[in-house]
Simulated scan of single mutants.
Amino acid sequence: MTLSFDDITWHRAVGQLIEALDKPNFWAQLVRLLDQYMPFDSWVALLFSSDQHPQVFAASPGVEGIPDALFEDYLRGVYLLDPFYIASREQSRSGLYRLWEVAPEHFEQTEYYQRYFRLNVVADEIQFNCQLEGDRTLCLSLGSKQRFSSEQIALLALIQPWVLALLRQRLPYETNETTAPASADWRVQLETSVQQLKGAQLTARELDVGRLMLSGCSSKEIARKLEISVETVKVHKKHMYSKLGIKSQSELFSIFLQAQNA
């Protein structure tokens, strides 16, 4: 078999990345290589786990080096509505995932999409997920101002084994340097904040229904995920709205944001 010039270039670049695994510029070198094959507009490397906030290892720089306020909101708690975070908790497997494969039915109608995703990521996102021990997922997300094409996704699927292997080998050089702040169970954290903000006490099930609503799940999807009936979902929603004194998901999202910043 004869190797093409592109094949040689790719394997040489992967070899250089292996050499850079313990170097500070590893992530920048990796995304520069990927960008040669499939252009994108933003990226972030982070670690998801069930009992901590996301741990960010590296990310594309903000405008003029200023931290992105929307991304700061994401790290404080908005990540709980991220379809990729939810999928990583529910599916727990390695692979390449596209936004429209993991997003709930009504994702584009959510306040999360309108207030965060559409402004921060813009149009489309794909994510390499490397599943680790301890219910952790090391992720490399690529965001774009336009939809990724089928050809681009196919190319990423082709190089996925190399990327996932590099992510796994990089992790030991990250965890020794950076620690993520411990976080209480999100239900306890949110319930405490809601009680302080609104004087309301929501049940664990009401919190589950509220979070899934905000993430874009229809009543049918919520019922399936929680293994309850659609009518029970509607009852929980009614009780939650009554306790909080609200009438819309927009108001619920505002309370959710306040709770994360409380």
Rank of each mutant, 00 (worst) to 15 (best):
S250E: 15
L138Y: 03
Y85V: 04
Y37G: 04
A103C: 13
D35R: 10
F5V: 06
L244S: 11
Q29L: 10
G62P: 03
L132A: 11
L244G: 08
F256W: 05
D124M: 04
T192N: 12
K225D: 15
N129E: 00
A262F: 07
Q169G: 09
G216W: 07
E101P: 13
D208P: 05
S183P: 05
G15C: 00
G62W: 06
V230E: 07
R205T: 15
A45T: 05
Q195R: 15
S250W: 09
A45F: 03
R211S: 13
V78Y: 03
G134Q: 12
R89D: 09
L119D: 13
V14S: 00
S94T: 02
T179F: 04
S215L: 05
E251A: 09
W100S: 01
S42Q: 07
D22A: 05
V122Y: 14
L257F: 03
D135F: 09
I228Y: 04
L17Y: 06
L166R: 02
Q196D: 08
M240C: 11
V78P: 01
Y85Q: 02
E64Q: 06
V163Q: 14
Q114G: 08
D6L: 10
A28N: 14
L158R: 13
R224G: 07
Q52H: 00
T2V: 13
L252T: 02
A180R: 11
S193C: 08
S92C: 11
T232K: 06
T178A: 04
I153Q: 05
P104I: 08
L212F: 05
V235F: 14
R187Q: 11
W43M: 00
L70Q: 08
D124N: 12
N176C: 12
Q260A: 11
S92L: 10
R170H: 09
L96I: 07
Q146F: 10
H11W: 00
E133H: 07
W162S: 11
G216A: 07
A184E: 08
Q16V: 02
L166F: 12
V235I: 10
K225S: 13
P83V: 01
P54N: 10
G216C: 05
I66G: 04
E108D: 03
P24D: 14
S94K: 08
L17H: 05
E251S: 11
L47Q: 02
D51F: 01
M1H: 08
H106L: 02
R12M: 05
S60Q: 10
F5Q: 14
G143M: 00
S215H: 04
V230L: 09
G15W: 01
I126W: 08
F40D: 00
V194E: 14
L164V: 06
E19H: 02
Q55Y: 04
S183E: 13
G95S: 15
Q91F: 13
P104W: 01
T2N: 14
R118G: 03
R205F: 13
L96F: 02
L33Q: 10
F117Q: 01
Q36T: 06
Q160E: 14
Q160T: 15
S4F: 11
L81K: 04
E227M: 08
R170K: 15
A87H: 03
I86T: 04
A13T: 00
D73Y: 03
W10D: 01
G210E: 03
